[in-house]
Design a protein around this nucleic acid. Structure first.
Lengths: 374, 374
DNA sequence: CGTATTTTGTTTAGCGTCGGCACAAAGACA
DNA sequence: TGTCTTTGTGCCGACGCTAAACAAAATACG
């Protein structure tokens, strides 16, 4: 077991592994993992493919999604959910939990917790959704508490009590990418992404999400990135990152009228994918990428991350114009020139969902015996 | 001993106190501290007034300063130092250390470490001064190593080896204010200050300085706060916080030509103190305060601090126009309206110096027995 | 003024965690 | 086949802390 390289002796590593195996979380392979070099080979440790799961869910402007996620961020089963979101959070979350319960019945897996990603800043202690601007929810709705009540009423057989967690979607995406995706190994990870609407940011410091003193940190949407001729923003200013780099901004810059059929994000994605040869589209991408680069440079000056990962439309922009975007970030950040910050794309599918699952897994990882008794 | 309220039992608190007293760091008063209420009174614990000290120093554009600082941030002795700073860091630091050695000889105190504050971002591992723009030093000079070498050569009798620490002046000011000043008790403290030149920021998270992945965080000087008619900045942009809210900006806005006799900061201070009744001065203060408020609001949206403290000229602006500045911060930050962030003045004299001392005290606090044997 | 009560300091015993060590096991190499 | 190298596992002891019991020093009350 190479685990001795985690600053822990073989003795303790073995004890921990035995404990986790006894709880059914991991399996110890009889077949050694890596052979080839001298000495007794290490045991291979792998996540128990029949082990417990958590219920992960995401609500966004265009619908919701539920899934079962195993230890290590592997999605075991998914239910797409419906495409509209009622204005009453309790109704939505009841439907979400119902989908999850169906998945649990279908798979027969044991559920040890639940996590929910929402497109809003989230505050403790009740997981209040502070600004669900893109849902029709009331501001301040205690989403975590509602979610927990839905879980309690669902009849799902939890390891008591039902542990429910809630977080902002971009924050959770960053957490997932840090553990299993493009952010692995980063100590100061900055994630910026367009969700289905608007722009969000997240910061993972030493493996832990930085959400600020009240869960309101990294509201990066209102950095000024186009002071000269910026569009007005609902915040009262103009030229904000939010309105200058979202899907609508790209469509407008390319001279396209948005259609009502699919989400704006999808329309913008399709535009870049299918019509990048069109000079108007390429120009629009360059323009919006420049604005994004300016915003990222400002964040670099304030936060000094060691890596930036981009999601949503921002990821598309990076893929379409990587040199240009990276050059702007380097030129406009004071320290980009000396070394510079890697700017990467997100690599996980459904990273908000996986992040919500990580939230739910956390207490199990912190204290396995406290959560799983039998 | 009320120390039992730190999540530790009376037994351990007593053991720790006894250890610290044995090392000469604190004294246990025979006279009880607080009487009046029932029960056996607690022992009063106070910093040993004859205990060891650290050597703290600050270099800035207009000179340097050395001091001896006891445990708890009390300045024991100060030497003003000279008013000019040579271009060679080794010369400056040799002079600084010489002043410190004089103080040590004069007071007969034991020295257990040394800390230095410089007006530049500082990187590990050698304490490189990355951008000593306002000193004539070469960028990247390994200040911490030079400082340590000067200490070694000084003949000062250290607890071996001479432990030298270096940090950015505003960062260290924030650290000092967090421990002994206006930032006490804050978990997410943001500090913004004009040094003798330019604008700096610092963030103290859960009691620890956040300096970013390479010591470059909180370079807040280049937030855009005057997009419409801003002054050009050496960073290539215009309307930056750095050029819009520094002492020169205030003097210019008030229509005064800066004189060469005293520092710009002092001239700006004097202007506000002596001529605030002049409508031109009051208008200039309001204008610069608005710009500062806009910058602070941007930082609030990104960092979500639970408290902001201001130093240097910014502190003067807050004192002169508190309602106006606080209103701008609240109005322009997305969450200021609901609750809002307290904006306060720094309260410590020589806070950078005290912060440098805190840096030097840290290893003693972490492991008293490891540093102080006899 | 003497006793009871309250609060804190101090000592002791106990527990849990972790590192170090010794020994066993399992493959590689000669 | 025998030795070497590396890892798993069990045992012991050091360390840090908590809890509990006792002593001490003040206030409150009769």
């Amino acid at each position: 077991m190479l685990t001795a390289e985690l600053g822990v002796t073989r003795a303790t590593a073995g004890a921990v592994a035995a404990e986790l195996a006894a709880l059914g979380l991991i399996t110890v392979d009889s077949r050694p993992a890596a052979a080839g070099h001298q000495g007794r080979p290490s045991h291979g440790l792998s996540v128990n493919p029949a082990g417990p799961v958590v219920l992960a869910a995401q609500v966004h402007a265009d619908g919701f999604r539920a899934a079962l996620v195993g230890l290590g961020g592997r999605i075991v089963a998914t239910a797409p959910g419906c495409g509209t979101v009622p204005a009453d959070p309790a109704h939505v979350l009841a439907a979400v939990v119902e989908e999850g319960a169906k998945l649990l019945r279908a798979t027969g897996r044991r559920c040890v917790g639940a996590g929910l990603a929402v497109p809003s800043a989230v505050a403790e202690p009740d997981g209040e959704a502070l600004n669900p601007l893109h849902l029709a929810w009331p501001a301040g709705a205690p989403v975590r508490r509602i979610f927990r009540d839905c879980l309690t009423d669902s009849g799902i057989d939890f390891a008591v009590p039902p542990r429910a967690f809630t977080g902002n979607d971009v924050n959770l995406a960053a957490l997932a990418e840090h553990r299993h995706g493009a952010g692995r190994g980063s100590a100061h990870l900055l994630c910026v992404a367009t969700g289905h609407r608007g722009v969000g940011g997240a910061l993972v410091l030493d493996g832990r999400l930085h959400t600020g003193s009240a869960g309101l940190a990294l509201e990066v949407g209102h950095l000024t990135v186009n002071p000269d001729e910026g569009l007005p923003c609902h915040c009262g200013s103009r030229g904000c990152l939010d309105v200058e780099t979202d899907p609508l901004a790209l469509l407008t810059a390319a001279g396209r009228a948005p259609g009502p059929e699919v989400s704006l994000l999808q329309q913008a994605r399709d535009l870049v994918r299918d019509e990048y040869a069109d000079p108007a589209v390429a120009t629009a991408v360059a323009l919006v990428a420049d604005r994004l680069g300016l915003g990222l440079a400002g964040l670099v000056n304030i936060l000094n991350p060691d890596r930036i990962i981009l999601g949503g439309l921002h990821q598309v922009l990076l893929a379409a114009a990587p040199e240009r975007l990276r050059a702007v970030v380097a030129d406009r950040s004071l320290w980009g020139r000396s070394g510079g910050v890697p700017v990467l794309e997100c690599t996980l599918d459904h990273n908000s969902l996986v992040g919500a699952a990580e939230l739910a897994w956390q207490p199990v990882l912190d204290d396995p015996l406290g959560v799983l008794e039998p």
